[in-house]
Amino acid sequence: MPIVMDADRVSRSLTRIAHEIVEHNLGVDHVALVGVRTRGVPIARRLASLLLTITGREVPGGALDITLYRDDLMKHAVGPQPIVRRTEIPFSLDDRHIVLVDDVLFTGRTIRAALDALIDFGRPRTIQLVVLVDRGHRELPIKADYVGKNLPTSLAETVRVRLAETDGIDEVSIERAEGDQA
């Protein structure tokens, strides 16, 4: 089970990404973070905290559950049907730069679903995408604006992201042939 990112590496990637967000948006005016459940949420929180340190500004954050927007191909991909959780976006999306945050970018279908959901919530000015890991094998024309690490993988492999908030440790590893992650 090769470890491709340890806690240190994860932390430095997120710091770099936070700076990139500030640079790309010329500050954090009208920027808001929306984490895709489940692991996108703690990553988004960490980014909010980093942005606060860098700019002194509070960036609003929310959590998005995309279960109700999944397409048929995604349903067979994951194991047991995940429980639908609440979406919490306590601010208006209108005219904002929404930065979507997820742990792994793979086929692109999760992000497609997230885009559908966001559009139902309002009219953002732009939608940008942060991912901790991009493992390739896109099935849709989706690209990330900010990437922690590019990780070429084979379809027989699974990328496993663990975060301190959910799993007790920060670590990204590759496992063979267990079934795919979207």
């Binding site: 559950d65 279960t67 109700l68 927007y69 429980i83 639908v84 959780r85 609440r86 979406t87 919490e88 559908d116 959901a117 139902d120 919530f121 309002g122």
Partner: peptide, 16 residues
């Protein structure tokens, strides 16, 4: 619980 939140959105619809 999650479904109840849909009712509080401006667009009260999901494509499920």
């Amino acid at each position: 619980e999650a479904m109840k939140e849909v009712a509080s959105r401006p667009i009260k619809k999901v494509p499920t």
